[in-house]
Nucleic acid binder design. Structure first.
Length: 584
RNA sequence: GGUCCCGUAGCUCAACUGGAUAGAGCAAUUGACUUCUAAUCAAUAGGUUGCAGGUUCGAGUCCUGCCGGGAUCGCCA
């Protein structure tokens, strides 16, 4: 349950009663917000309703606020209302409202923070989608973690959702890859292959695949036409590469629901052809020429007529080529078909997670999404900025040639999935990120992963101690639900509950904005509030959780601790980070 | 040159889609460990939100123009 949403709707009701003309304009009632004021001295909740509605109601904010405040004062749980500044209405809630939140959180437990009802529509989150030509490297990691956390967040918010990986298996680079493997195959058969020729993939990860082929086929492949041999091994190589990639993803606890092959879009009866036909019927395809890019004309620029998609009709800067000079489809043509395919599968909300180097691709993807769905599908492209790896504050340079190439697997092996995930999420996705090995593995509060997990472990330790010191006390969840929560009236306790009570609206905001980092910052704040309260028990022993002489208050406090623990756990669950009961 | 992202405390970053006196952490200074694991906490200090305009009751947030950093720029994927 979300307290802020609850009072928002109560205020909306009060407004419609006060101003009947608002009944005809429900969108106005969604324009105002109920939120915690930045400055806690202003109260627990604040609304800007009077200011937002002043213009449409042709009245002044103070006058509206006066009337509204009087109504709000009659609500259950409101202890004080006042009007401040240009027309803010500040509310203070009665202590029992906060105390009751503990029971609510404990009752809803793993579901606390989820909206009551599932939103309509189907969401497709496409992420990773790295070319299957080798293992995932560090550059892929951020998008992987971000996409997975966003998917978890939206699933938590009850969206009908599918996590998808688009396999670029139709382009020329798969042929190059197969050729590279052929060399390794020869090598495995004992032939001298020398240097890997330029343009082929030199990675050692192809060696075992060559060996596998040698085991399976012997020298059979050498005795056939090279093109035929390559065609024969392509699917095998592709399978092997996807196996590598899936193994890396599994290390980060990332599992896609669907792997979509680009290849299936090609061919006479494929989606690309169908989509292009459809676009032609809509008048969105034409033969024409493009202007060379200004300021920097490519040397091999040839001014030729080509098949273009009218991307400019949908907000793109220029129209885009659909067919290459050799007659095959462009990557973008396949992408348009892919988005149409998603739309026809019912995904009216399509989220695509891309790396920073694809920022220039955003407009055309959105244009494609609009075009193929008649404006019904929404495409949101999330760009993940670069990650700078650091050791001791110095850049940890990586280069494929020097062999210091860091793969996603290496990274996870060194610091663990929790650290990789949390650090990558403890930052807006569109800002660059420093990843310092020394900081993220430290067990101090500099390290936010540790700090948050420690808070959860501490909460669990309270229960272990209670069990040890008060073996006769029933501390089951059912018993906690009977605790007298009105005993929790110290300002420090109320403070902590308030932070825990923010979770629902943080989830709602993060979901709507497609910004999982908000959950990471929130859980850090909650951990901080919990650590602070914990330490208060040192200066003021009466605030300790476990009180041997007064089991009543102990039970109440345990209810509080469990609520906090639950919210920490729910937050970490969204982030895909473990919530340990004990730190080693 | 076009497009997109970024510019907030000495450093690393937030700011709940336009709200009130812009917040955390690190570093600095001071204080709290016979502990509910101090693996933590409390307090002090730190700002012309790159610059200049505009929109309005109100701008870090939206618009325009500059400055600086990054990414990208028919047919690669």
């Amino acid at each position: 349950m979300d307290l802020f949403a609850l009072y928002q709707s109560r205020i909306a009701d009060a407004l419609s009663a006060l101003f009947p003309q608002l009944a005809d304009a429900p969108e106005l009632l969604r324009r105002f917000v109920v939120e915690p004021p930045r400055d806690a001295s202003h109260g627990d909740m604040s609304t800007n309703a009077a200011m937002v509605l002043a213009k449409p109601l042709k009245s002044n904010p103070r006058a509206i606020a006066e009337q509204l405040a009087e109504k709000i004062g009659e609500f259950d749980g409101i202890e004080a209302v006042d009007i401040a500044g240009p027309g803010f209405i500040n509310m203070r809630l009665a202590a029992n409202v906060w105390q009751d939140m503990i029971a609510t959180i404990n009752a809803e437990s793993a579901d606390y923070g989820r909206p009551k009802e599932a939103p309509s529509g189907k969401v497709n989150v496409e992420f990773v989608s790295a070319n299957p030509t080798g293992p995932l490297h560090v550059g892929h990691t951020r998008g992987t973690v971000f996409g997975d956390a966003l998917a978890r967040l939206m699933a938590f918010s009850r969206y009908d959702l599918s996590k998808e990986y688009y396999i670029n298996d139709a382009g020329g680079q798969i042929g190059v890859l197969a050729k590279s493997v052929m060399l390794r195959y020869c090598e495995a058969l004992g032939h001298e292959i020398g240097e890997i020729p330029k343009g082929l993939y030199p990675g050692a990860y192809l060696v075992p695949i060559g060996k596998k082929l040698a085991d399976q086929f012997g020298d059979e492949l050498l005795n056939m036409d090279e093109a035929a041999a390559i065609d024969k091994i392509k699917p095998i190589v592709l399978d092997e590469m996807m196996g590598l990639i899936k193994a890396d993803l599994a290390k980060l606890n990332v599992h896609h629901d669907h792997f979509f092959s680009e290849k299936q879009l090609h061919g006479e009866d494929g989606d690309i052809r169908k989509t292009l036909d459809w676009l032609r019927e809509e008048g969105l395809v034409y033969q024409g020429t493009l202007e060379p890019p200004k300021g920097k004309t490519p040397e091999d620029w040839e001014d030729r007529e080509q098949t273009l998609f009218k991307a400019t009709d949908f907000g793109d800067d220029t129209d885009r080529a659909l067919v290459k000079s050799d007659g095959s489809y462009t990557y973008f043509a396949a992408d348009i078909a892919y988005h149409r395919n998603k739309y026809l599968r019912g995904f009216n909300e399509q989220i695509v997670v891309l790396g920073a180097d694809h920022a220039g691709y955003v407009k055309r993807l959105k244009a494609a999404g609009k075009a193929v769905s008649g404006g019904e599908a929404n495409v949101d492209v999330k760009i993940c900025q670069l990650v700078n790896l650091l050791r001791n504050g110095e850049p940890a340079k990586m280069s494929k040639r020097a062999g210091t190439f860091v793969t996603l697997g290496d990274l996870v092996d060194e610091v663990g999935p929790d650290v990789v995930r949390f650090i990558m999420l403890f930052r807006r996705n569109d800002a660059p990120l420093d990843f310092d090995f020394d900081v993220v593995t430290a067990q101090t509060r500099d390290n936010p992963v540790f700090y948050v997990q420690y808070a959860h472990a501490r909460a669990c330790s309270v229960f272990r101690n209670a069990k040890r010191d008060l073996p006769d006390l029933d501390i089951s969840l059912a018993a906690l639900q009977k605790a007298d929560l009105s005993l929790l009236n110290d300002p420090a306790e109320i403070e902590l509950i308030k932070v825990a009570s923010q979770f629902s609206r943080v989830v709602a905001g993060a979901t709507e904005a497609h910004e999982p980092h908000r959950i990471a910052f929130y859980v850090h704040e909650l951990a901080s509030a919990f650590h602070a309260f914990w330490t208060k028990g040192k200066e003021r022993p009466e605030l300790r959780f476990v009180n041997l002489d007064e089991q009543t208050i102990t039970l109440s406090r345990l209810a509080l601790v469990n609520a906090v623990r639950q919210v920490l756990a729910n937050s970490l669950e969204i982030l895909g980070v473990s919530a340990p009961e004990e730190l080693s």
